[in-house]
Simulated scan of single mutants.
Amino acid sequence: MGEKRKSQQHADSPKKSKAQKPRRKDRKSSKIADVARAPITYPSSTEGSSFSECTARLTVTLAPVHGSDHWAGIHETLNSMLLHFVPQVRGVVLSYSKAKMLSHTALLFNDSPFGQLEISVKLLVWRPLSGMTLQGAINVQSPDHIGLLLWDTFNASIPASLIPKDKYEWRPFSDEEVAARALRNGSIANSAAEDQGDNIDDDAESVTASKEHSVGVLQDARFGSGEWVLKGTSQSVGSSGSLSFVVVDVIRADSVLSVTGALR
């Protein structure tokens, strides 16, 4: 009798395990569904400006050609830093001033012909941080992201995953809207070319007209096959041409910074 009961238990055990497996899968799938429905988490708000000034102490490498003119080598080095990310100051250098040599003698090491010179300089730095609120000009919209240009210099992107779907939705353009925008872009471009030809003798007026038409083209070209709008309405998020967003991440590629943002 004991052997029969044991064999009966072994025979029943696989059935129990098979019955339990679907339950575990259901629990796992429910957890994944909960994560998918989780709201977007925004970084804590960061006060202050993305621009800052700092006085940095840097080591300048002087080529042999600048052995008799240290300032020429210093300015050459500082100019090469402009609009590039510099790790020593943790930001993109926009301008410099009040450069000062901390020593009038460049040091040579081993058999290298290049001299090392310590300087101090005041730098204007662009240093965006997570949680800051920035504003940029929209240059492209797609179902995947919104692209922006900050201060006509830096790139920013708001991926669709960071656009709250309870507030915003993607609205594709109809064929008539796409054709009308293409026609408008073509007429603006032709008008700008004609104005430039008519104002060859007047450079100032030609430049002004070209800029005005370029702005018109940019404002219309920022829309492709559709646009992001407030949910339930036709109001575009880029109706004014610019958009405020929250910095989520700052991406560094070599010496270039780009920003990933989110809409509130």
Rank of each mutant, 00 (worst) to 15 (best):
N199S: 08
H145C: 10
T105C: 10
K28E: 11
V65K: 13
K15G: 15
S191H: 08
Q9H: 10
S210C: 08
I251C: 10
L58Q: 00
G241M: 07
V93T: 05
G232L: 03
S174M: 06
F114R: 13
S161Y: 07
H84C: 04
P128H: 03
K16Q: 12
I188F: 06
S191R: 03
E47M: 10
D34M: 12
T61L: 13
E47P: 01
V65Y: 05
E194L: 15
R222K: 15
S95W: 11
P43R: 02
F173P: 03
R90G: 08
S174A: 10
V250E: 04
A160L: 01
K18E: 08
S30T: 09
L148C: 13
V125I: 02
M1F: 03
R5V: 13
P172C: 09
W170S: 01
Y168H: 11
G241S: 08
S242I: 08
I158A: 09
H10L: 15
S97A: 15
F109L: 13
G136Q: 05
A192F: 06
S97P: 00
P172H: 08
F223M: 14
L134E: 01
D152T: 09
P22F: 07
K98F: 06
D175L: 13
L134M: 04
A192T: 14
F173I: 05
V250Q: 05
T61N: 11
G136T: 05
C54S: 09
W228R: 06
G73K: 03
Q135L: 09
S112N: 14
I32T: 12
H66Y: 02
P39E: 00
E3K: 10
V215H: 07
S142F: 01
W228V: 05
E227S: 10
G238N: 07
N155R: 15
D166M: 08
G91D: 12
F245A: 10
L263V: 02
Y42H: 14
D201A: 13
P22C: 07
Q135P: 00
W71E: 01
G224A: 09
T208C: 02
K165W: 00
G186Y: 02
S236W: 00
L62Q: 00
R24K: 14
E176G: 10
K25H: 12
V92W: 01
G2A: 11
R37G: 05
L257F: 09
K28Q: 12
S239F: 00
V35G: 05
A180Y: 06
G186K: 14
E169H: 03
I146G: 02
K25I: 12
W71P: 01
A137V: 11
S210E: 05
D34R: 07
G238R: 00
W170Y: 01
L123N: 07
R90A: 15
K211G: 01
A179N: 11
R222D: 07
V259Q: 04
I138S: 00
P64E: 08
T41F: 02
L162W: 05
A63Y: 04
N110H: 12
I146N: 02
A156K: 00
A137Y: 07
D249K: 15
R252L: 15
V246A: 02
N185R: 09
A99N: 04
